[in-house]
Design a protein around this nucleic acid. Sequence first.
DNA 1: ACATATAGTGTCTAAAAGACACTATATGGT
DNA 2: ACCATATAGTGTCTTTTAGACACTATATGT
Lengths: 237, 237
Amino acid sequence: MTEQEYLQTYNAKAFDSPLLSIDAVLFSYHDKQLKVLLVKRSNHPEKGKWGLPGGFVDQTKDRNLEDTVVRKLREKTGVTPPYLEQLETIGNSHRDRRGWSVTVCYTALMSYQKCQVYVDAVSDAQWVETNKLTELELAFDHAHIIEIGRERLKQKALYTIVPAFSLSETFTFSELQHVHETLIGKPIQKKSFRRRIEQADLLIDTGEKRSETGRPAILYRVKPSAGNHTFLRNLEL
Amino acid sequence: MTEQEYLQTYNAKAFDSPLLSIDAVLFSYHDKQLKVLLVKRSNHPEKGKWGLPGGFVDQTKDRNLEDTVVRKLREKTGVTPPYLEQLETIGNSHRDRRGWSVTVCYTALMSYQKCQVYVDAVSDAQWVETNKLTELELAFDHAHIIEIGRERLKQKALYTIVPAFSLSETFTFSELQHVHETLIGKPIQKKSFRRRIEQADLLIDTGEKRSETGRPAILYRVKPSAGNHTFLRNLEL
DNA sequence: ACATATAGTGTCTAAAAGACACTATATGGT
DNA sequence: ACCATATAGTGTCTTTTAGACACTATATGT
């Protein structure tokens, strides 16, 4: 039998294959709070519960898994997130009552303001503060997945400035430090924090300033390449 | 319709779901070389080519994805690897000629000697030096997956001693340093290397020594917990 | 003018890696 | 027995970068 013949007679449905989905943990930082986007499930199973945005691969629309994630996130937020990273794939026989199920999870970050209007218009989507998640009963193992995403982002806060992508387009040094502190769960020496970021040259000075009370702060923008930079030395936990 | 009713009438095969598989990049260090385990494909597609050990979830045998990986690796090596870590999941429409395909990839490490006899007996499995991979035409995107695995292991060599799991049960400091140097592609100061490992107390002195030529070296064993330890500061690249 | 609030800097200390010369302990040849 | 050589392992100085914390800078409100 040649490969040609094999492929012609191949039938994907002949095998029992696990259910395959993607899920996205989309974080944003707003009002001094880390928030995660949740979606109310309109269909069975776990209908009515809140869960992560996600769904199934559309083999006609999606060329790869990232396409699927981006498509699902655009449905709920209207925009493509500036930071998207694969988190972990969870697959087992008990996470979904329909049977053996595999979900490829992603962590995404985006600006709250960039999609606030859109999210408000989508009736089944909302931002939830990460420290109020215990009040909700989430679908499937989504609470666990969010925890993994948060843990990963915490690690990133120690040796990258990836969390910058959870802020609005322009932001102050203090705001960035705040997200990091929220993630790490511990104050950071501002001098240390500024020094390493300045040395690595990861931000662009927009020239503008923002003043609320006190001395006005310079507004920065992340360099596009900043998402890939890793410091040689971690901040201490 | 209740969830009960929904689940009773649910039919997994009603949807077009991508093909789902797992692949394992199993590394080992032997004869001053990093080697990867390859398997000769006995079935279509890509029949006759060499590829990574892997395959499909068996919904009756496997409770989760790791079970699948461990089962597949045991088939080829006879043992369960002491280090196993999820690498990345690759899914797109073009990697497999059968159609949209998703593979959950793992990196594993194990001692060469621990499975050498078994591997030699399995006619379709062999260890290949990573720098001789270009001589083989590998199946699917497996060359790429190995590259991702190697890159991940290189990063780990900078802030963990995870590569220790690619050595035999007991090993010398120099041997461990050698794996790291191979992965990083650059010599390391032996003093720096020893110092950080001693400070973190990651190895057990077996009391035994090994002498070939020159002063005999102390044989160590990795502490089981050593796989989780991360240094605060990376070695420099 | 001055209190206060936040932004941002100067500078010393501490921790850990890099560099590299040194000592230690085996083998094998004469 | 002695010495060359090979590898293992140490002492110690330098360099880098984070932590600590007091200081200066620039705004607002009274």
